[in-house]
């Protein structure tokens, strides 16, 4: 444990709070993944981990290594940027795949909108190859 001994206590407290907060948020996110009853509800759960869960753990890591090496260590921010950019893309692809599969099986997902402004959800089954969004 010699690595930690030179650190000031207030830095250790900041790092500890960040780590535990990030890990707890990620954990609650996967609790949602395990608990929610439908797929479209479950897809919201991992975004907790990818937004603030990852943010807190990475900030904790940055603060820790900056204090440890006595110079700014900010390369962890790359992980945060990659995670922030890639997660929406994968979740969107996955949601569209799920929607496509559900509709191919005849489950009319997305047509039961509350107070729907526009009931055009059925008509876009065939044209999923439009903008790649």
């Amino acid at each position: 444990m010699s690595v930690f001994d030179g650190l000031p206590v207030w830095i250790a407290v900041i790092v500890a709070i960040c780590l535990v907060a990030g890990a707890a948020i990620t954990f609650v996110g996967t609790v949602g993944l395990a608990r929610f009853p439908t797929f479209y509800q479950r897809i919201h759960a991992p975004t907790l981990g990818t937004s603030f869960g990852a943010f807190f753990v990475i900030v904790g890591s940055m603060v820790f290594f900056t204090a440890l090496e006595a110079r700014p260590v900010i390369h962890e921010v790359l992980i945060l940027v990659f995670v922030l950019i890639t997660t929406p893309v994968t979740l969107m692809l996955l949601a569209r795949a799920a929607l496509y599969r559900d509709r191919a099986e005849g489950n009319d997902v997305g047509a039961d909108m509350p107070a729907a402004e526009n009931r055009s959800a059925r008509s876009d089954v065939g044209d999923t190859d439009q903008t790649g969004l």
Binding site: G29, Y40, I43, H44, A45, T47, L48, T50, S51, L84, T87, P88, L91, M92, A95, R96, L99, G110, N118, S120, S123, D124, D127, T128, Q130, T131, L133
Partner: peptide, 15 residues
């Protein structure tokens, strides 16, 4: 999509 609680599912370019 990055905001927890809302997910972009499908964009229809025609409408």
């Amino acid at each position: 999509t990055a905001t927890p609680g809302s997910a972009w599912i499908n964009y229809n370019a025609r409408t």
